[in-house]
Design a protein around this nucleic acid. Sequence first.
DNA 1: AACTGGCACTCCCGCGGTGTGAGTGCCAGG
DNA 2: CCTGGCACTCACACCGCGGGAGTGCCAGTT
Lengths: 339, 339
Amino acid sequence: MSEERKLAVLRAIVEDYVETREPVGSRALVERHSLGVSPATIRNDMAALEDEGYIAQPHTSAGRVPTDKGYRMFVDRLSGVKPLSTAEKRAIQTLLDGAVDLDDVVGRTVRLLAQLTRQVAVVQYPSLSRSTVRHVELVALEGTRLLVILITNTGRVEQRIVPVVGEISEQTLAGLRTRLNLAVAGRRLADVSAVVADLPEQFGPDDRTLVRAVIVALEDSLDIEREERIVLAGTANLARSGPDFVQHIGPVLEAIEEHVVLLKLLTEMGDGAGGVGVLIGRETAHIGLQEASVVSSGYASQGEVVARLGVLGPTRMDYPNTMAAVRAVARYVSRILAS
Amino acid sequence: MSEERKLAVLRAIVEDYVETREPVGSRALVERHSLGVSPATIRNDMAALEDEGYIAQPHTSAGRVPTDKGYRMFVDRLSGVKPLSTAEKRAIQTLLDGAVDLDDVVGRTVRLLAQLTRQVAVVQYPSLSRSTVRHVELVALEGTRLLVILITNTGRVEQRIVPVVGEISEQTLAGLRTRLNLAVAGRRLADVSAVVADLPEQFGPDDRTLVRAVIVALEDSLDIEREERIVLAGTANLARSGPDFVQHIGPVLEAIEEHVVLLKLLTEMGDGAGGVGVLIGRETAHIGLQEASVVSSGYASQGEVVARLGVLGPTRMDYPNTMAAVRAVARYVSRILAS
DNA sequence: AACTGGCACTCCCGCGGTGTGAGTGCCAGG
DNA sequence: CCTGGCACTCACACCGCGGGAGTGCCAGTT
């Protein structure tokens, strides 16, 4: 029994099952793929594959279905890289090139991914913890309100309004603005807290409450838990994945709404070959996503990986094409953010 | 045949059907509600109600199911106002009082509504077109970038970064800032464009390009089409609405993703009795929402209605409780935004 | 005139039986 | 090591058949 043919059989099973959504038998296999051997031979290979846990039968006398382990093998060793069609490449380019700011890039990207893959798309906002401060601005509004603005190197802008007691002199404000920017510009957001800790001491006792309030607002804007945001699109694609999947759609929708769950998945998964990572079925370690897979890739801003994007769909998905799309979009977004 | 009893029968049918999710027959009706008459009598009433189009039978020899028209009657004339439980009121209060800014209010509100009603919750952001300018701020960033910030009376903050040619003198900036605020503060956003139209002429030729760029950025931030945003939560509740509804979940998910559709529905529907508006089934005039209803209410900021919030669920929903929850939340949000 | 009990009728739905066909495992022979 | 053949297994579709819930109608009562 040739080991290579066994893997070829596994590949064929995955491909056929993904396409037809029905258990695939030995006869259909030899007919659709030119394997050059008889169904009986295939049956032996299948029995072996089943023993090794790559495929399973829903019931006796039914065809075989890939297991999570089978998909894993397929993804790791059996699927070639499918280049995108030029039409798809053009679509990516024209859609993303029109983006005007970070929100727009993220919004367009997630819709594009959903459309391209016909699955649920996920884009994580550039993580604040990895980005750096470009500029901090303070603006006195009418009366007793102060606007604190934080701009990061990824183009993200956060603002907070802090109420302050009494009028603020423009002079104090200018001093604080200068020292603040001197201290934090170029720093990683995670380091800001430490850097500004001793700032109040550099000011007179009258101004210290103000300085502290500003620092609190600043720290609030980079509160990482709160700001690790993700954006979704294409939820309706779940319903298109066939009636059998719609049965179990509830838990998936719940998992999707728990952005924390998705974030955890994304941040903890690594990139595999070609810069694309895949979690299959139970590998997600989340009930409700047992029948689902996640395909994702990191994307970069100015050469450094800042967040991830990808898609979520039924385990029975077209991995080669999905991975190709995710990779292409991730690369293109990186290119846009590089500027 | 008493007209009142006929309506009582309709009410009973709606209530039972909503609860059991099964067609309700004459016998079950007299058993569960003390109508004081025999099943045969009820049957006559039911026949009449069916003639008038309030109820229908899925098939002969099945019980009756309310039609859209039946639900409409129920909502308009048959459902009393259910006050919320004190536990629910407390939940609303404690959850919403912790909100720190507008985004937070909206986010908490939508999650709260979803949890309270066990349906899909929708909150429309305060419409920019109805709100007014509180303040405009200009900040020169390092080199050739200018940050334009717009703050509205609802607490919303929009910002744009505009590239400019050459250095900007702080003096020019101060002048522009002053005149700009003088012109637009307190104005409705819709009027801003007209008001600032002749502003460039008040400056020297050197500065006009700058002024025009700022104006463009400003107009961009209040581009109404783009900023009529809505936020959703509780999509997973759709799957909880029973297996029969899950079958038709696809079109509903699609409609939900088309935020434009929801916005149109919300903005075009009026408030009924008690300040809560309801669209039932086909009344939504949208394929895909034929089996769904929308319950919504306007909410106010400083006494003026600025946007709507509500929920979307199967036509077979508990209208009295849903309407009560929507109304209560809308009122509470209005109270928070009043400050 | 309104209500009621009785009765015939309809038709969905669940049940058991059945046969067909796809698919398998195994074996003996090339 | 592959192949054709063969017996075996089972899901699934089809069918026929009550049971039962529900209806509509009518004649009788209040």
